[in-house]
Design a protein around this nucleic acid. Structure first.
Length: 431
RNA sequence: GGAGGGUUGGCAGAGUGGUAAUGCAACGGAUUGCUAAUCCGUCUACCCUUAUCGGGUAGCGGGGGUUCAAUUCCCCCACCCUCCGCCA
C-alpha cells in the first residue's frame, strides 16, 4: 500500500515508477480523490461537532424536569442533524473506499537502481560463485536420479494427492530434514535469526498484509467456510511479516530477524506445462524463510546482509550460483528491490531460481499497520520489512542431486551435511 | 461440539445510557543544598490551522444496530478462563 501523502508530494516520481512497472499514469487521479476525501472529512467532522454540542445541551437538562417545549425542540433539531450526518458519512466513506481500492491494486515502487524492463531478460547479473561441474557423462535430471535411488515417488504421490506432489523415502526423506536443519542452524547460530514454528493456515487479513491478497487469490489454496475463508500459505513470509500487524514496536527492538522452516502451498494457476517433472514446481514444498523488520535507514544494508545469509548456504553446500538483480517487470508486487539467487542445475544446464530476497520497504507495514516508535518522540513510523528464502529445500535437493551425481547414478553429498545425514553421505543407486 | 465467566490505558482496576474514577510503574518538565518529597504533564489515527500555539473528530476486543447521546442496551464474530464431551 502506498502513502497517498507521499504520492501527492511527488506525483511525477510515482507515475514514473508505475510506468517502470508497465502501468498507466494515475497520480493525479489519486490525488483528486484524496482531496475529495479530505474535504468531506472536514464537513462531516464539523457537522458532528455541532451535533455533539446539541447532545451535550440535552444532557445538561435535568431529567427530573418534565420536557418543556424548548427541550423537545432541541431534540427535534438533533434528530434532523443526525440524518444529515448519516448521509454525509456515507458519501465520505464511498469516496474513501474508491481510492483505497485503486491504491490496493498498485504494486510497490521500484527503487532507483532497479533496472527497467518487462521480463527476466532485463535482469542484471550481480555476481557468480563456483563453476558448473564438468561431467564426462550425460548428466541425469534429479527426478531420474531420485527414482534410481528408489527414494523419490511421483506416481504414488499423484495417486494420493494428484499431480505436482512428491513422496520421498529413506535417504531423500532424511535429506529434506537434514537440509532444513543445516539451514536453520546457520541462520540461528551464526546470523542471529530467531527460529519460529508457524501455522501454515492463515487468515485473509494476513495475506492481505503481505500483499498476496486481494490481487493474487488464484495462486492460493483456499479452504474454510465462505464466511471465514482461510488460506494455505504460499510462503512463511506471510505469517512472519504478519506477526507484528497492528503493533507498535520500540525502535530499540529493531532489527527483528525471524527464520522459519515451513511447508508452502501454491496453486500455480497458469503454470501448466512448465517444469512438469521433478521437484522444481510443486503444489507443496518446504522452504526456510528469513524475514527482517528494520528502520527505514537500515533496510538497504539489511537487504544485502540477508542476501548474503542465503548465499552462504549455497557456498557451504558447494553449489554454483549467481545473483541476479530483478528488473522492474520481473519483481513481485510488494517488493521495491529484489535479488534472485539462481543455482546451477547440471541436467538442464541452466541457472534456476532457488531464492528470492526482497526489500519491501514500508509497503507491507503500511498494509498491516505495523509501526514503531522512537524514544522521546511523538508519533509512529513504519518499519521496513524484508524477506528472503534461504533456501527452498526441494530445489536445493534437486541441485545437490544433479551437481553431485556420479556416472552410475550414485550421489556423494558435500561433507558439511555429514552431521545431519548421520555420517552417511553416499546415496547409492539401486542396482 | 456444549454450558458458564471474561476482554477497559504500560500494568492493576472501577464504571447499568449523559461523553472513561482511582492506584502503581515508567518517562518528561517544574521546584529543590544533595537524596527524598511535592506539583504539572503523558496514548493512537485523522481533519482544520500551521512558524508555533491551538481547535476538532474517532478509538473501552472487532464489526453492525437502537438512541439526540452507547464502556453501558441489542445482534454477529474473535480471543482468553473454568467445566463437560471428543481427540493426536
Amino acid at each position: 500500500m502506498h502513502d497517498i501523502k507521499e504520492i501527492a508530494k511527488d506525483p511525477t516520481a510515482f507515475d514514473e515508477a508505475m510506468r517502470k512497472r508497465g502501468l498507466p499514469q494515475q497520480a493525479q487521479d489519486l490525488i483528486a480523490y484524496y482531496k475529495k476525501i479530505k474535504a468531506s472529512i472536514s464537513v462531516v467532522e464539523m457537522v458532528q461537532a455541532e451535533h455533539n454540542q446539541r447532545s451535550e445541551k440535552i444532557s445538561q437538562t435535568p431529567s427530573d424536569i418534565k420536557d418543556d417545549g424548548n427541550k423537545a425542540m432541541v431534540i427535534k433539531a438533533a434528530k434532523e442533524a443526525k440524518q444529515q450526518i448519516t448521509n454525509l458519512k456515507k458519501i465520505s466513506e464511498d469516496t474513501k473506499s474508491t481510492m483505497l481500492r485503486k491504491l490496493l491494486e498498485l504494486p510497490n515502487v521500484p527503487v532507483a537502481d532497479v533496472p527497467e524492463g518487462s521480463d527476466e531478460s532485463f535482469n542484471k547479473l550481480i555476481r557468480k560463485d563456483g563453476s558448473p561441474p564438468d561431467f564426462r557423462f550425460k548428466a541425469r535430471s534429479h527426478d531420474e536420479i531420485g527414482e534410481m535411488l528408489d527414494a523419490m515417488d511421483f506416481p504414488r504421490a499423484a495417486k494420493v494427492s494428484g499431480a505436482r506432489f512428491v513422496v520421498l523415502y529413506d535417504q531423500l526423506a532424511r535429506l529434506e530434514r537434514a537440509l532444513a536443519n543445516f539451514m536453520l542452524d546457520v541462520h540461528t547460530r551464526e546470523y542471529g535469526y530467531r527460529e519460529v514454528q508457524i501455522p501454515v493456515l492463515a487468515e485473509w487479513h494476513t495475506l492481505y498484509g503481505s500483499g498476496h491478497l486481494p490481487k493474487f487469490e488464484e495462486d492460493l489454496f483456499k479452504i474454510g467456510t465462505k464466511e471465514r475463508p482461510r488460506y494455505l500459505i504460499p510462503t512463511a513470509e506471510t505469517v512472519l511479516t504478519g506477526l507484528h500487524a497492528n503493533e507498535i514496536l520500540q525502535e530499540e527492538e529493531l532489527p527483528l530477524r525471524y527464520v522459519a522452516w515451513s511447508s508452502c502451498f501454491r496453486a500455480e494457476a497458469g503454470a501448466a506445462g512448465k517444469d512438469t517433472r521433478g521437484l522444481i514446481r510443486l503444489h507443496q514444498f518446504s522452504k526456510v524463510e528469513l524475514v527482517s523488520y528494520t528502520t527505514p535507514g537500515k533496510s538497504k544494508d539489511e537487504h544485502e546482509r540477508m542476501t548474503g545469509c542465503a548465499e552462504e548456504i549455497l557456498k557451504r553446500l558447494g553449489l554454483p550460483y549467481r545473483v541476479m538483480l530483478l528488473c522492474s517487470g520481473d519483481m513481485g508486487f510488494s517488493a521495491e528491490k529484489t535479488y534472485d539467487l539462481e543455482v546451477w542445475l547440471a541436467a538442464q544446464k541452466k541457472y534456476r531460481e532457488i531464492s528470492s530476497c526482497s526489500n519491501c520497504g514500508a509497503f507491507q507495514s503500511r498494509r498491516m499497520n505495523a509501526r514503531y516508535k522512537r524514544k522521546g518522540q511523538k508519533g509512529t513510523l513504519f518499519p521496513h520489512a524484508l524477506n528472503g528464502s534461504a533456501l527452498a529445500v526441494g530445489r536445493t535437493m534437486a541441485a545437490l542431486l544433479e551437481n553431485y551425481q556420479q556416472s552410475d547414478g550414485t550421489v556423494v553429498l558435500p561433507a558439511v551435511l555429514d552431521p545431519y545425514m548421520g555420517g552417511d553421505l553416499t546415496l547409492l543407486a539401486k542396482s
